[in-house]
Amino acid sequence: MRKSNNSIRYESRAGSISVTLLTWFLGLLFFFPIFWIGLISVRQEVDAGTFPPKWTAPFTLGNYGEVFTAGAKNFLLNSVIASLLSTIIVLMLAYPAAYALSIKPIKKSKDVLAFFLSTKFLPPIAALLPLYLILQKIHLLDNIFALAVLYIAMNLPLSVWMLRSFLKEIPKDLVEAAELDGASTVKILYKVLAPISMPGIAATALICFIFTWNEFLLAINVTGFGAATAPVYLVGFVTAEGLFFAHLAAVSIVVSLPVVIAGWAAQDKLVRGLSLGAVK
């Protein structure tokens, strides 16, 4: 029994509509918590905890005003310094390392890769006490640059693995051709390979930036007032006495914005990057 063309067209159209509806549903499902946080952030505390929510509750931007009067600037600045500095240095170190482990594999490159990965086996909490004591001994507690160094160590193994996967996708003939033309290793790295692997580099950079920006465990434990980052500031709005949902929602939005903007700006490269290499 053969299906008519109309029937096939109808089924294909119905399938396409179902997929579209499912996609929209999933998209809205993922977006809903963000929408909810945004909604609560413009409510007074008295209305923020209402369940079921009262959609007509008065609108206020007062919570956002209080976020900045409570001194958000220093915390955000520390987050920017720690995230940018560590991301840049991680890329500068991971990119050549990934080259040496993929395009021109050094001896025992697989062992080196396994070693990089093994550094992630230890849960960060297990390393916390020794790290704290070392930083205390060398008088580097509450130092934003020391925190950035810890973030470099945290992100380097993952970045090497990611960049290696991206670089492995590039045909070796291209490198050989450049070598025949007399290009140095640095030139090959930065003039020949970098433009091709830019989506991968962007994806790695963004992931490093996000991990660093959102990192809480190290930030709360090895910083004090001077080097505390945005997540530490955010958690300060949680109180055991009194209501705090509206204020916490406002500060969550403010703290999340830089990452959202960075993700938005690198959107096309990120999608290409993530569909290319390690995260494929």
């Binding site: 001194g71 709360i220 004090g224 007032f225 505390a228 530490v232 958690v235 300060g236 109180t239």
Partner: peptide, 14 residues
């Protein structure tokens, strides 16, 4: 005066 403000449990740890 520089203030660091934390929730109760985090404060105790700190």
């Amino acid at each position: 005066v520089n203030f660091t403000v934390l929730p109760e449990n985090e404060l105790r740890d700190k």
